[in-house]
Design a protein around this nucleic acid. Structure first.
Lengths: 273, 273
DNA sequence: GGCATCTCTTTCATTTTTGAAAGTCTTCTC
DNA sequence: GAGAAGACTTTCAAAAATGAAAGAGATGCC
């Protein structure tokens, strides 16, 4: 055997073999009898085997043909499997990256932008560098600034403001991120502003929130987070220096993807409300 | 999804998806870039899905495209499996039917007409009505007469003669086939000729031989069987009334099957020697 | 900024594939 | 035994698929 036969020709072979002739197979496959005749001849030429004996009573498998037929049995179910996959396959995932606080907000407000009837399923990804979207490792990102790269499309959503929160006004000492993970503007600002007051640190922003709830210290949070936490109360004014817009970012091409467009619209509606 | 996509198109889809573009896939599949471009468009049209976002940087899977790619993973191995099957698949079987005695003869003389280097494997089938070959339920038959149907080809081989055999000349009483299975000329002849002497009967011809070897009675056997059984000796003359030619029969079309032709030639050589 | 290179699409002449119709042969039916 | 019905193949004109070349846009390198 020099080259691979066409998979389509093999499917036709199965039809012919199982129907004992071209006529039945033609009806079954929607192709014409002459076409099947030629395709079977071609298949035999490619495989360098004689698959049928062509009596005037019809096509009958040769010994070699029977072997091929036998080996293709499992192959036969493929068409049905494929149909099932295409009709009832899992919903496409839309990969969403966000910072810790926005991710928390999305988690808590999931029903407001997604439900079981959606044609897609969210896949929340660990937020890392902006390259994620540019390199198509993610579909949608939530950022604190518009994208710089021209091939990324940005949509401005809500304005995010920050404030200091604590379990009570008696609480003293700030909670801060460990040095290695101190990369966000708010984390840097806390460090720069309250360095002397920072006692406990953690490597995970979510941990800071849990600590604050336990009364372990003061924490700087976006208001959209702080306001929803029962255990915490806002301490002092909002921090204007940290205020920023929130941006919904995706690859320019991806906006034409029906599924991603829907996810974008729903996220946008949530964040702008 | 209205209609099934071509399996070939799906293979091309896998190539494009995994290479992140048409150029690489073209190199891999041997088709030209424009062809792949059109086939992917057609696939999307048939599936009614948008599988790729076509940026100027290349083809990138959409959310829907990723789902299809995922579901086709197992499908991917098929090409390799198929190649293996086609190259190292089992040898074709040649289905041979014969009467009990001839079957026994073939079994005992297997090395004389078949060995591991043959391109085919014998499949000895229970001998039933002549329709077996006409309806292609078997490939080669050994018969005691030339075929009557014009679409069966016959080849005369050896002349078969019969005689009475027993463990010793002292043995009395004939062994015969039970009435229901008494269909062969020799079985009928024994019944007609020695009815009064028949004591033990069996439904299986092979059983008669075993009984005779045990000294249970006289049995009528083809000489080609009787002569090879150590325990038995010929009693009296050959029975001319039962003498007949042995015919190698196959479907007329099947003679053009390379594999069956080889089997025919080898059997013929054995039976004519 | 400019030039080379990469991507995919479009165009177009050529090749291939297709199916209706006609042809051939066999089998079935009366 | 003639006619009808069935099988497959051949013929041939129309339709579809193909790939080289050209076009268009993005990227990368210097």
């Amino acid at each position: 055997m020099k080259e691979m036969p066409s998979l389509d020709d093999l499917m036709l072979f199965l039809a012919v073999a199982d129907n004992g002739g071209l006529a039945g197979a033609a009806r079954l496959t929607g192709r014409s009898v002459p076409t099947l005749s030629r395709r079977m001849q071609q298949l035999e030429r490619v495989l360098e085997l004689v698959l049928f004996s062509r009596g005037k009573q019809g096509y009958i498998l040769t010994a070699q043909g029977r072997v091929l037929r036998e080996n293709l049995s499992e192959f036969q179910g493929i068409e049905r499997d494929l149909r099932k996959v295409l009709e009832h396959g899992p919903r496409p995932q839309v990969r969403i990256t966000a910072g810790s606080w926005t991710a928390l907000f999305l988690a808590q407000n999931l029903p407001r932008f997604w439900n079981q009837t959606c044609a897609w399923v969210p896949d929340f990804m660990e937020s890392t560098v902006p390259l994620d979207i540019a390199r198509r490792g993610a579909d949608i990102g939530l950022r604190n600034a518009p994208p710089e790269q021209p091939w990324l499309a940005g949509r401005r959503t809500r304005r995010v403001t920050y404030a200091v929160y604590a379990r009570s006004i008696e609480v003293k000492g700030f909670l801060g991120l460990s040095e290695r993970v101190r990369q966000t503007p708010s984390a840097k600002w806390v460090w720069d502003t309250y360095r002397e007051d920072i006692s406990i640190t953690a490597t995970n922003p979510r941990m800071l929130l849990d600590l604050a709830c336990a009364g372990a210290g003061l924490v700087v949070l976006p208001c959209f987070v702080g306001e929803t936490v029962q255990e915490l109360q806002q301490i002092g004014e909002r921090i204007e220096a940290l205020s920023h817009e929130e941006w919904l970012v995706c690859h320019h091409e991806a906006r034409h993807d029906r599924v991603i467009r829907d996810a974008l619209d729903r996220l946008s509606e949530l964040l702008c409300s």
